[in-house]
């Protein structure tokens, strides 16, 4: 059973992700954030439930919707916000933006603008870990749409035949951009004949499970089993987490492909709300304590915005630094 301090830390991370994403939604609408932004609000239980099982030396690879993974992994949110603002103090010196945040110090190998491109990175990192003989693992986050990319399928194959310590976490938020991952009828378009991405892994001999991605403890338990078997050298596994994103595919998405009622239905099973009710019911925390935690998270995000807004833009002379490895460029 998880100790209370661990449970409260998980709650804090979930509300910090939500506060960060809600604020970015607001700032983007005000035109303060350049480039594309894809928000993670609604999917917090997946990132936090999985990453709470990791230890120093473990790695993750992320997606275009990577803020939640970064925060759960411990990337500094001031640097993240500054990165979104394109400032010099950003995690990647303001040159990457929302879709390319990476922080190797905490094991975050990078968000990724290319759908499914985290798979090969995860497999490569896992091969290195296996070569070194550590018991560390790599988590590869990817969406349901990414499961139809060749890079992910090749990654599943390599991870299986080399028995690498990779946990493939599918964040099935019901939509591959605007196309439903699952529909009750063939008359409507579907993104995959496999119907469930968990089915795909089985074809590669990788054990897979379907998990309620709105319940952070369900995700935690399943991820714990997957991480433990990877640490024991038993190879890769796949978690198919059923979840939902509240905002559009990208900020500015008019979302004509889904109804307000559908979003409201999912909000009834909001991962933070479910966890909050459980913590209060189990006597782990009071309503007041959880509200304090939420306020602390909101304040940290506000501080991060202030930090970002006060930070300078990179100098034009820095345009060619940290970009290429070849000094001639």
């Amino acid at each position: 059973m998880l100790p209370p301090e661990k449970l409260l830390d998980m709650y804090y991370k979930m509300v910090l992700i939500r506060a960060f994403e809600d604020k970015v939604h607001e700032l983007f609408a005000q035109g303060k954030i350049p480039g594309f932004v894809h928000l993670y609000a609604g999917e917090e239980a997946v990132a936090v439930g999985v990453i709470s099982n990791l230890k120093k030396g473990d790695y993750i690879t992320s997606t275009h919707r990577g803020h939640g993974h970064c925060i759960a992994m411990g990337v500094d949110i001031k640097g993240m916000m500054a990165e979104l603002f394109g400032r010099k103090t950003g995690t990647c010196k303001g040159k990457g933006g929302s879709m390319h945040i990476a922080d190797f110090e905490v094991g975050m190998l990078g968000a990724n603008g290319i759908v499914g491109a985290g798979g090969p990175l995860a497999v490569g990192a896992a091969l290195a870990l296996k070569y070194k003989g550590t018991d560390n693992v790599v988590v590869c986050f990817a969406g349901d749409g990414a499961q139809n990319q060749g890079a992910i399928l090749e990654s599943l194959n390599l991870a299986a035949i080399w028995k690498l310590p990779v946990i493939f976490v599918v964040e099935d938020n019901q939509y591959a951009i605007s196309l439903r991952s699952l529909t009750p009828s063939k008359l409507q378009p579907r993104t995959s004949t496999a119907r469930s991405v968990a089915e795909r892994a089985v074809g590669f001999g990788i054990p897979s499970v379907t998990v309620d991605g709105q319940d952070v403890l369900a995700v935690y338990e399943a991820a714990k089993a997957a991480v433990e078997r990877a640490r024991r050298g038993e190879g890769p596994s796949l978690l198919d987490c059923k979840t939902y994103r509240y905002y559009g595919h990208f900020e500015g998405d008019p979302m004509v492909y889904r109804s307000v009622e559908e979003i409201e239905e999912w909000r009834k099973r909001d991962p933070i709300l479910l966890f909050k009710q459980r913590l209060i019911r189990d006597g782990i925390a009071t309503e007041e304590l959880l509200e304090d935690i939420r306020r602390r998270a909101v304040k940290e995000v506000e501080d991060a915005v202030e930090f970002a807004e006060r930070s300078p833009y990179p100098e034009p002379s820095e345009a060619y630094t940290d970009v290429f490895t070849d000094p001639y460029y």
Partner: peptide, 21 residues
């Protein structure tokens, strides 16, 4: 039942996975 036989026991035991196909 599309979800039958897909739970966590695939990771902690030798339970088999019965595909939807």
């Amino acid at each position: 039942n599309p979800d039958a036989g897909k739970d966590i026991r695939r990771l902690v035991s030798s339970a088999s996975y019965l595909s939807n196909f």
